[in-house]
Amino acid sequence: MPLLNKHDRRPEHREARIVGFLCNWCSYGGADTAGVGRYSQPSDLRIIRVPCSGRVNPLFILKALLNGADGVLVSGCHPRDCHYAEGNFYARRRLEAVKRFLPTLGIDPRRFEYSWVSAAEGGRWQKVVTEFTAQIHSLGPSPLMADAPEFDFLKECGI
């Protein structure tokens, strides 16, 4: 995948806006490992570090998608490896529920993914980020909800 330049205005070269919620103990470390290992990665992902994937309120995902994010990625420790023992087990249930809920809203469920990446898995992180970014690029920019046209009182009254 070619490196994208955010100043490039051509749609196919446009940088996507992807929000990543990464668990401090695993995926954030994994992203760091990928960086230290000098793996090349697309630069569309904006990382938000959270203490645990269980900290991710599903509303974060919906709020981001409604407010112009093209994709959202949540990544935490592998199940059974949670730093807080069971945070990602709860997260898994919530995140899966949100993923199944998205089609009703008219949002493509492929705009949201969750993954498990440990701090040692720099290579895996590179794969997740590259695949997800490619997926978002194929989907294009996310739809935006427009406001209703302003109510024109005079016009409604026929004046």
């Binding site: 199940p79 087990f89 898994r92 899966e96 969750y114 498990w116 794969k127």
Partner: peptide, 18 residues
Amino acid sequence: PPLLTFRVEERKIKEREW
């Protein structure tokens, strides 16, 4: 309530293979 609990191996959640 199902969202206040979990199973180590979820029966019906098939996660994506990366």
